[in-house]
Amino acid sequence: MELTVERITKEYRSLKALDDVSFTLTEGIHGLLGPNGAGKTTLVNIIVGILRPTSGRVLWNGKDIASLDWRYRNILGFQPQTPSLYKSFRADEFLRYMAAVKGVRLTGKALDHRVDEVLETVNLRAEAKKRIGAFSGGMRQRLGIAQALLNNPKLLILDEPTAGLDPQERVRLRNVIATVAMNKIVIWTTHIVSDIEYIARDILLLGKGNFLACDTPQALIAGMKDKVFARSVQPQEVPIWQEKALVGNVLRRENDVLLRIIGDECPGGTPIQPDLEDVYLYHFREASGGGEQ
């Protein structure tokens, strides 16, 4: 089971949304991390086959997805970014409809069982008879994941599934994904580091249409060794440091302020243990609004 993105470039007139992007994914959860406008959704739309790349191709087990056509869609589970769904449908009804659209060959009790199963997975079984119009944003996101799971996909793509969710919902959703990810390639796009920090097998950092890094979270964090510093400064110095360095955190203490500085060097700073958020900030300093190094 292998998904290969081969030299994908996507241009919109003068804008290059993706520039010669290549990678291969195997079983596991893969985080696609990047700031807004990095090209994550463009890449996802190309992978799911609704957007035509300017050049390059996407291969599933070595075959071009364009030639696989419905056979590719048959193994695909996709949750787009915040769809409104059908407000007049009940949750179970919506899933039955999606089962028909996805060509799930189940009827009667077998279909009811499958619908109950995916609702249970996303913790929505008690809400099965509720109209989608009455659902909260989080419930809709979970229902979106439920529909993506209906056909037991081999490739599950979740485009910003935690957008607009409160922390509790995000944790619940993360646990759901971790549970269902067995024997699947899962691509999770997000710009929120904590979403994928602990569950992703590897992380692809996408910035302005280019891959900046692609590795396991541990390796990415290890690569940040001696690039994150703690530095104590006086309160009046904080704006100066924010201007000249990338400040990851500002902790006000009784007599001073402790800054978390991310950069190749930091005069007077003490190297500390980096985390994935530091990796993100380091690679996307411009988007983060960090200062000159």
């Binding site: 419905w70 787009p80 999606m98 996805k102 056909n151």
Partner: peptide, 19 residues
């Protein structure tokens, strides 16, 4: 399109043609 549900339909097995 208004609901953005076309993305769900177009990426499903029967989403093209039959729907």
């Amino acid at each position: 399109h208004d609901r953005q549900t076309w993305l769900l339909l177009h990426t499903a097995r029967n989403g093209k043609g039959k729907t």
